[in-house]
């Protein structure tokens, strides 16, 4: 049976259709869910909080979206073990909603960064990356101004101990580089229970070689096994 994926849409979201395209291509049934809805569709296997600039990034990225009516349901869904994936602004929203630890800050260089970025797979014991090998290098675009992941020392140690760091930034040879100043060059994490995921790169924009990379397919494929 096809996997059912709900894709959230806030005012200012702009990646919902790319995300829909990607997940449909991989065989999922998708439904876009407006932020004012108070109910999620039934029998869903995954919620994706897509990228964009929800609420114009006012105050802090993701800070206002977190209080949208649908987010109550998302929290409930996640707490009951449901899978949630936040991409870019979606990652920021999940952090603001305390579904993922840490916080997002302005990039070190203070610029909006938009480019293809190499990433290293740091962990494959999770839903999405189970088909990949640790240390493998993939390529996907990043496009953000507030993608610098911050977490305090205790939090960072927790991430390491529980293998919650899933992706880091690197160059094409796998050497660590840091485009935005993220602590330990972290690009993606999951929660302790391994059902909530957040990453700054856009796998949904890397699903056909004509786009510069099709590695996004491999980054999402684990979910369809």
């Amino acid at each position: 049976m096809a996997k059912r994926v709900a894709i959230l849409q806030f005012p200012g979201t702009n990646c919902e259709f790319d995300t829909e395209y990607a997940f449909k291509k991989l065989g999922a049934e998708t439904e876009i869910v407006w932020h004012k809805n108070e109910k999620l569709p039934e029998n869903i296997d995954l919620i994706v909080v897509p990228g964009g600039f929800s609420y114009g990034d006012y105050l802090r990225s993701g800070a206002i979206a977190r209080f949208a009516p649908i987010m109550k349901e998302v929290s409930e869904f996640a707490k009951n073990g449901g899978n949630v994936l936040g991409i870019c602004n979606g990652f920021q929203i999940l952090v603001e909603a305390h579904l993922l630890p840490g916080a997002m800050m302005r990039n070190d260089g203070l610029h909006f960064i938009s480019k293809q970025q190499y990433l290293k797979i740091e962990n494959n014991n999770n839903l999405f990356l189970s088909d990949m090998t640790v240390g493998e290098i993939v390529k996907a675009p990043i496009a953000h101004a507030e993608g610098k992941f911050f977490i305090d020392e205790v939090g960072l140690n927790n991430l390491k101990e529980n293998n919650q760091i899933l992706l880091t930034y690197c160059d094409e040879n796998g050497n660590k580089i840091n485009p935005n100043g993220s602590i330990e060059a972290i690009a993606g994490i999951c929660n302790r229970e391994r059902n909530v995921f957040g990453l700054m790169p856009h796998p949904e924009r890397a699903i056909e070689s004509i786009l510069g990379s099709s590695d996004g397919v491999r980054m999402l494929q684990g979910f369809f096994k």
Binding site: I64, E96, A103, F150
Partner: peptide
């Protein structure tokens, strides 16, 4: 709850 992100 909203105005500050007390993590940072």
């Amino acid at each position: 709850s909203l105005l500050a992100n007390t993590v940072i």
